[in-house]
């Protein structure tokens, strides 16, 4: 399948700051792509180039086979965008702003809008002046989700949302996924996109450092395991796939290679498992590995 969004060797400089050095990735139809990187990595810059808000200095970018700088109007007909940072006019209510965005977008669904306002528990009659960061984010999301698009581009959509609302957001994204639409979802927290993303693109200092499905990336690194057993837990230390074992009372903490996870669990069961916690790698872990490798 040909990608509907394609960037290759993207570069962007702001004065002396080289914000993007070499950004390459693609989004295929029906794919949800997590775009992960710490603050200042270049996520928003990349996304702004994709929307034609700023112009690339080098490399190629394409959405639906069109150039985002030259043909932004054609592209915008088929995408929904929620920026990472939004200011909302204090003289308008959230409801008015949602209507405005939908209208300017051109293909909004009123019923969907009302449904989403309810789901996100937004008070549309309140002046946007009084909105928290999370509520501002909701306004953008509701407007964008009410619109039927082929590609959704969300820049850190869940920052500021409380966990309950993040849950609602994830459920709405699932629906988009089920409808076979595509999405580019940026975040500086890996676990935020874990559940949703088919593929993860990791950017650091303007360069893509990893691309692949989460599984592919995960096997590159190790999960953290906390294990408590009836018998002596120190017996775990010497089996294959266990690294950096430390023991506190009857509790052992170590890193586990995913290839050996089964062996490790079998052994743990033999020792009489009382407590088991496996934490998947964080973004930081991935970077650590990248440094080492």
């Amino acid at each position: 399948m040909t990608a509907i969004l394609k960037v290759e060797g993207l570069k962007k400089q702001f004065g002396k700051v080289q914000a993007l050095r070499d950004v390459t990735f693609n989004v295929k139809p029906g794919e949800i792509v997590g775009f992960i990187g710490p603050n200042g990595a270049g996520k928003s810059t990349t996304i702004r180039i994709l929307l034609g808000i700023i112009k690339r200095d080098g490399g190629r970018a394409e959405i639906f086979g069109k150039d985002p700088w030259k043909d932004s109007f054609e592209i915008h007909k088929r995408i929904s965008y929620v920026p990472g940072d939004v200011s909302l006019w204090g003289s308008l209510t959230g409801g008015e702003i949602i209507d405005l965005f939908m209208k300017l977008h051109g293909s909004g669904d009123k019923e969907k809008r009302d449904y989403l306002i309810e789901r996100f528990e937004l008070d549309p009659r309140k002046n946007a002046k009084g909105y928290s960061k999370g509520n501002r984010q909701k306004v953008g999301l509701i407007a964008a989700l009410s619109v039927d698009s082929d590609l959704y581009i969300f820049d850190e959509p869940t920052s500021g949302l409380d966990p309950l609302m993040e849950q609602v957001f994830q459920e709405e994204v699932e629906k988009i996924k089920d409808a076979n639409k595509s999405m580019l979802l940026s975040s500086h927290i890996l676990s935020e996109v874990e559940r949703l993303a088919d593929k993860v693109v990791i950017i650091r200092q303007g360069e893509i450092v990893e691309t692949g499905t989460l599984d592919e990336l995960r096997h590159l690194t190790r999960s953290t395991v906390i294990l408590e057993t009836k018998d002596d837990v120190s017996k775990m230390a010497n089996i294959n796939g266990v690294h950096d074992f430390v023991q506190k009372d009857n509790q052992g903490i170590f890193f586990a290679d995913h290839e050996y996870l089964n062996d490790i669990l079998v052994k743990a069961t033999k020792l009489g498992t009382k407590k088991l916690e496996i934490t998947p790698p964080t973004l930081e872990d991935l970077f650590m590995r990248h440094y080492e490798g």
């Binding site: 929307l51 965008y81 929620v82 920026p83 977008h105």
Partner: peptide, 14 residues
Amino acid sequence: KNLYLSQIYGTKVR
């Protein structure tokens, strides 16, 4: 500059 138009840039507004 104050980010009021950001989302509008992604719509059909030229």
